[in-house]
Design a protein around this nucleic acid. Structure first.
Lengths: 245, 245
DNA sequence: CGAGGCTTTGAGGGTGATCAAAAAGTGTGG
DNA sequence: CCACACTTTTTGATCACCCTCAAAGCCTCG
């Protein structure tokens, strides 16, 4: 049986990763919202075992009572349509919250898969709520996180809806570049992509063939250099002009 | 000068609407999340003057420091692209929160227009945060509201992205029917639409012509009856089959 | 009653989907 | 380390859906 966080409540804790004080993404975590030292936060957090690439982290319809923070690695969430086709809903990187889309409906609307070796922190939602009530700064951080997510969803969604394949691809690339700046996914002007091109095409609402052709054509125009799991940005200026219009 | 809530801080209060205890959508308001009587909530809420149909409620880039609850009426939010075309991002009905998409960026990403005579309640966000910290049930209500919105955004977006015009239109109709059930917008199996068909087409990511043709064709198939500002649902069963596949 | 926006209808064109198949990459086990 | 199976990506050809442009009717509101 595959382990998933929700089917296996007795998660093997990785003690060395347990202490928030030693976490290397502390500044990206919601605990960064706490004024005082995050000792209390540390106490409610559980650290999960790691997940290998392609391993399922959450199963659709699983009951959720926690939020999860990506500590290291990357993940994708995807649904399966009635006719069996998959659709990628989002990608998650270190510091991102997995599960705020579930707190109202209390179950995963999607399967979530690790894209590479990935570690998560589990934050039991009910305990988080209590802590939020005692620490206004943490409550504020949560509101801000959720507000950002709503803003992003409503705008990235919009963006992609009516735009051409060129624009969708270019704006995805530049947004991701900004988001991951300073992380191990960025080397100079190159972005390492942990997801497959097929996943990316699904996320962008395109067919794999269309994404392939689009990347080729964007490379021919000199905007980017496309390779297996990496995209190099050549012409930020030119890309911005395409995206803005 | 057009009055907007944010350009005119000295809002004329409508005293008769001021008291939360007499609000006819109290059960839809975030104050419904409060265990005790909502006296304290009542104290922080400001009620705005009403807005006429087509009147602008918020201007894009306006600074925001409050959330707003639609007390009565309906509104749309829309952006303007670089090339001047408008794009409708969302519709708001009684009980809906306008402004949670702004709390992280602190300004309106969109213009918001009244679709008909509309009343709003203003809830200063900072005061709301303080109240949330004192009343865990209110904090919980806010988390649930935001979680629902994220869930809806990520799913309605998904839904519309790859689906045919038929599916987009039918799922919009049935979702709206469910959402507005029991309100004045629903009479039997008919939905009154406060927005224009052009607004709706924009929201659905279609051209007005395409929406017009789609509605005609869905009527020919016997799913709905289409008229000026009303859509009657004839075949719930059949519609579900179309949407699910 | 007139002006303006909204909706409908028609004809033609383009972007991206679909289908098919080859090429390249990835992981596994011997 | 290589061979094999499998997945992912690419390429090509054709097609469908929706967009675009144009214009006429319709409704709403001043």
């Amino acid at each position: 049986m595959k382990k998933t966080l929700s089917s296996n409540p007795n998660i093997r804790l990785v003690q060395s990763k347990q202490d928030c004080g030693h976490c290397d993404i502390e500044h990206l975590c919601i605990s960064a919202g706490m004024d005082e030292d995050s000792e209390e936060f540390n106490e409610i957090v559980k650290t999960s075992d790691s997940f290998d690439a392609r391993e399922r982290i959450f199963k659709r319809s699983d009951t959720v009572t926690s939020l999860y923070v990506i500590q290291s690695g990357a993940a994708k969430s995807q649904t399966t349509n009635a006719d069996g086709r998959h659709q990628v809903v989002g990608f998650y990187f270190p510091g991102d919250l997995v599960g705020i889309e579930t707190i109202a409906i209390k179950k995963h609307p999607c399967d979530v898969f690790a894209l590479e070796k990935t570690w998560l922190c589990e934050v039991p939602f009910e305990k988080l709520e209590h802590l939020c009530a005692e620490h206004p700064s943490l409550q504020h951080e949560m509101f801000m996180r959720m507000g950002e997510r709503i803003y992003h969803d409503e705008y990235s969604c919009l963006l992609r809806r009516d735009e051409t394949a060129d624009k969708r691809v270019l704006s995805f690339i530049t947004e991701l570049y900004k988001k991951l700046e300073g992380s191990k996914y960025i080397k100079g002007t190159s972005i390492h992509l942990p997801m497959t091109k097929t996943d990316l095409s699904s996320y962008l609402g395109l067919q794999p063939e269309t994404l392939s052709r689009t990347l080729k054509h964007l490379q021919a125009k000199g905007y980017i250099v496309n390779s297996a799991s990496q995209i190099e940005i050549l012409d930020f200026e030119g890309i911005n002009q395409v995206v803005e219009n």
